[in-house]
């Protein structure tokens, strides 16, 4: 474990020094995410001019949902996104060989090698919006509920990673430029709106096979009165299933990997 922590510290140092080489891009990244936050808040603000609720949530609740979404996005952009970007390249060029030869878990290396230092500032910005959204909520939320909510959000980040990998690993068999990663990007949109707007089979799908609702919407229900035990057990079960599926797909993928010609 200590070896992995030390290795990750090297990843961080390397990422920060490289980010400093592209200073203008650093600024553009901050601008991009700030605009993404502004666009989503404006979207919900305009919608709430026409309705008092969206998916059963009030404006104040939707602001917390949006802030949770920003935090989730900033976390995945900082820790995982660059790794997701490089993964198909590693497989298609056969560069995965170098990771397989090292005396550490190749999945650890592939998933965490690239820390996006230029997104780190956005993480602080998103965290600021998150704290502001919770602080401006007109009713008391309770420290215990907030703590559980934050824990579930972090579990959501892990679930996001697992889901991304499930859509990335097929690159071992498809051998195309991006595999079905774009399908994930498209489906990801389903999680960017409150879960309550969905109806019928779509609502069930989003908490089971395509659990995008478990990333932000479901954790939020703990804050607004849902049974915490039910939410925790449901989230844990889905995460366990997704972990097993990812591990199995990774194992099968590695067996199919044929180095440079893959």
């Amino acid at each position: 474990m200590r070896r992995y922590a030390r290795l990750y510290a090297y990843f961080l140092r390397f990422s920060f020094s490289r980010a400093m080489e592209f200073r203008i891009d650093f600024f553009f990244r901050v601008l991009m995410d700030a605009l993404w936050y502004a666009v989503h808040l404006a979207f919900f603000a305009v919608i709430f001019r026409e309705t008092h609720a969206l998916g059963g949530w009030s404006w104040d609740q939707t602001v917390i949902f949006a802030a949770s979404m920003f935090l989730m996005d900033a976390l995945q952009m900082t820790f995982f996104s660059n790794n997701f970007w490089w993964f198909p390249v590693l497989v298609n060029r056969g560069d995965l060989d170098y990771y397989l030869l090292r005396p550490v878990s190749p999945l650890f290396f592939v998933s965490l090698r690239e820390f996006a230092a230029n997104s780190f500032l956005n993480l602080l910005l998103a965290l600021g919006i998150f704290v502001w959204a919770l602080a401006r909520y007109p009713e008391p939320l309770g420290a215990g509920k907030v703590a559980l909510f934050v824990l579930l959000l972090l579990a959501g980040v892990y679930l996001f990673y697992l889901m991304s990998m499930v859509f990335l690993i097929p690159i071992f068999w498809l051998q195309s430029r991006t595999g079905i990663r774009e399908v994930f990007w498209s489906l990801e949109r389903l999680g960017l709106r409150p879960h309550g707007i969905y109806r019928g089979w779509m609502r069930r799908l989003l908490v089971s096979l395509l659990p995008f609702a478990l990333l932000c919407s479901y954790p939020l229900e703990v804050l607004f009165g849902a049974d915490p035990l039910r939410v925790v057990l449901h989230t844990a079960a889905v995460i366990a299933g997704a972990t097993l599926l990812t591990a199995w797909m990774w194992w099968r993928g590695l067996r199919s990997y044929s180095s440079a010609s893959s």
Partner: peptide, 30 residues
């Protein structure tokens, strides 16, 4: 791959919009 991506992209993008506006009309009563 192209058609899988295209279909998923369209269904998700249009689907989300459809659900959002159905909810807005339903909940606002307008």
């Amino acid at each position: 791959t192209f058609w899988i991506n295209a279909l998923a992209g369209f269904v998700a993008e249009f689907g989300v919009t459809w659900f959002v506006w159905s909810a807005v009309f339903r909940e606002s009563g307008k």
